[in-house]
Structure formats: structure tokens, C-alpha cells
């Protein structure tokens, strides 16, 4: 029997290509929210990154849809806010995507809120309080200092999963940190006039931004977290707005502006829609432009108010 040696060579070569392409495969990252897709892109620019939601979508209410199951099936790393923000859909995706690699935070699952202290943790939760998060506010990406800690922890996770590129990940983090710290100095300066301002906002979406800048949220369009603005609640807000010097009504890019506009017209307050994340408006192309766009929008409102 003659064996075609060329065939064997080709087969061995082919097998070699398959094996090497497996071991040097691009890291496949599934991000629950666009801010973490952007952060992953800063830290692992060569990875294949997929964002499950956009800044126009309420991250509390996402369908565990077939496309997300298919994407998570292929993921090496899943990056989410955590603190139960995704409790209504992430567990279903984990169950249906049958990908053991991304089920445990010991392996390819990463929760941003695990890396830092969240604000507004609750000792006890009663659902009559509304759709609240016992583990604290999960919208942590708007605090630049917390985000930097998350970036460092995510880099550790990337190194754990893809050790062969650890030098590259460390260099990426160093580069990001330098640029981020410089930007933070700039933002702090920009945001100085906003310190001490009062706003009415929708949900606690910008809790961390307000905390970092020093803005006080004196009212919430939601009567209780998760419940839409009701007319009686808006009437109460209107009453209390008259007694205070409020800069603006702030809503996020995924939130309906009806209640805000109703209140804004009657209380003579401007309504400003801030991008909830990267892609929330045309200026917000990455985390840096997300922050500067958000601060600019607030500063513009304040200028209008001053005039």
C-alpha cells in the first residue's frame, strides 16, 4: 500500500495550524454593557469584543435573546457590572450558553462592582422600596477613580486567562492609566463649577458621577426605583422644585423624557439627556469622550441657567 507522503505532510501541517490557532486564539470577550466593552478595548485591543447592550437600552431590562446566548457560548471572558444589575437576564444566559469557562468569577467571569466599594448598599431589602439593589448602586462606571481600580483588576483577569500576553496587558494598563489620570485632572477642573449644584434626576443612574463631581440629586423622577414617573409624584416634585435652586433635570440616554419634559416646562427647568454609556450620543465614542461629553452637557446647561 502506497501512502501519499505529501498528504501526510499537509495533514500534519494543517493540524499544526489548527493547534497553534487554538493556543494563540484571540481572546473572546462578552461585555454586558458598552462601558465595559470600551474598557476591554483599552486593555485588550486585539481581543474580539462584543457588547450585549447599547447605551440606549435599559440594562435592567434586557431579553436573554438567542444572539446573546450564541455569543456567550463562544466567550472566554464575560465582563459585567454585577451587583445584580443583570439579575434579570445574565443567569438565563449563563444557563443556556452552557459555557463553563464564564460561569465563575474564579475563571472567566468578571464583575466590576466586586472590585470596588459600591455606594448605597442596603442591609435589608423590601420590595415595597421598589426595584432596589441590595449590593449597592451598580452604575459605577461614572466614577473615574473607581473605574481605574476596575481597569487594574480587569487587567489581572486578562493575564490570568491569557498569561502568554501578560506583558502586553500590563503595558496597555500603564498606557491607559497615564492617559486616564491626565484626563481626570482635566475633568476635575472642568467640573469645578458644577460642584454644589442641585439636580432632579431619573433613577440613580448617575449616582457616581454626581458623587465624584459634587452634584446633589434632590429629587428622583421615579417614585420608587424601577417604577415610571407618576403624575402625583411629578406634582410633588414640582412643589419641592419651587423651593430650591435647581440647575436642571437630568435623564439618561435610555430613559423616556416625557416626565422630565412635563416637569421641566412647569418648573422652568432645562432637561438634559446624558449618555448613559459609550454610544449614548454621537460624541461618546470611548470612555474618555463619554466623560467629556457628559461634563460639557452639564456645563452648557449651567451656562444657560446663569444667563
Amino acid at each position: 500500500m502506497r501512502i501519499n507522503s505529501n498528504f501526510i505532510k499537509t495533514a500534519i501541517l494543517g493540524l499544526g495550524v489548527v493547534i497553534s490557532s487554538v493556543s494563540y486564539a484571540q481572546l473572546n470577550i462578552f461585555a454586558c454593557e458598552p462601558e465595559y466593552a470600551s474598557l476591554a478595548k483599552e486593555l485588550a485591543p486585539d481581543a474580539k469584543i462584543y457588547a450585549a447592550t447599547t447605551a440606549m437600552q435599559d440594562p435592567h431590562q434586557v431579553q436573554a435573546r438567542p444572539s446573546l446566548i450564541a455569543k456567550m457560548r463562544q466567550a472566554d471572558l464575560v465582563v459585567c457590572a454585577g451587583a445584580d444589575l443583570e439579575i434579570g437576564w445574565l443567569p438565563m444566559l449563563q444557563m443556556k450558553s452552557v459555557n463553563a469557562k464564564v460561569r465563575s468569577t474564579d475563571q472567566g467571569l468578571f464583575f466590576a462592582t466586586d472590585q470596588i466599594e459600591t455606594l448605597d448598599k442596603l442591609d435589608s431589602v423590601d420590595l415595597s422600596q421598589g426595584d432596589v439593589h441590595a449590593k449597592g448602586n451598580p452604575h459605577v462606571h461614572f466614577d473615574p477613580e473607581r473605574l481605574l481600580k476596575i481597569a487594574a483588576a480587569l487587567t489581572d483577569k486578562l493575564i490570568q486567562l491569557d498569561t502568554s500576553h501578560s506583558a502586553q496587558y500590563k503595558a496597555n494598563l500603564a498606557n491607559f492609566t497615564t492617559r486616564w489620570q491626565a484626563a481626570m485632572l482635566n475633568w476635575k477642573q472642568m467640573a469645578a463649577p458644577l460642584q454644589g449644584q442641585k439636580v432632579i434626576a431619573y433613577h440613580s443612574s448617575f449616582r457616581y458621577l454626581f458623587h465624584w463631581v459634587g452634584i446633589e440629586q434632590v429629587g428622583d423622577l421615579e417614585p420608587k426605583p424601577g417604577l415610571p414617573p407618576s403624575s402625583t409624584h411629578l406634582a410633588q416634585l414640582l412643589k419641592s422644585a419651587a423651593k430650591q435652586d435647581i440647575m436642571a433635570i437630568v435623564i439618561a440616554s435610555y430613559q423616556n423624557d416625557r416626565g422630565a419634559i412635563w416637569l421641566g416646562e412647569r418648573a422652568k427647568l432645562p432637561v438634559v439627556t446624558l449618555p448613559m454609556s459609550v454610544g449614548g450620543n454621537s460624541e461618546s465614542q470611548d470612555l474618555f469622550s463619554l466623560y467629556s461629553s457628559t461634563l460639557n452637557l452639564l456645563l452648557n446647561v449651567q451656562k444657560l441657567e446663569a444667563e
Binding site: T54, M56, Q63
Partner: peptide, 11 residues
């Protein structure tokens, strides 16, 4: 088949 404006199921 499911549809939501901007894929935002809240409203």
C-alpha cells in the same frame, strides 16, 4: 419575533 425601539424593552 420581538421588537423594541432601539432594542430598549423598558418602555
Amino acid at each position: 419575533y420581538k421588537w423594541a425601539p432601539n432594542g430598549n424593552y423598558k418602555y
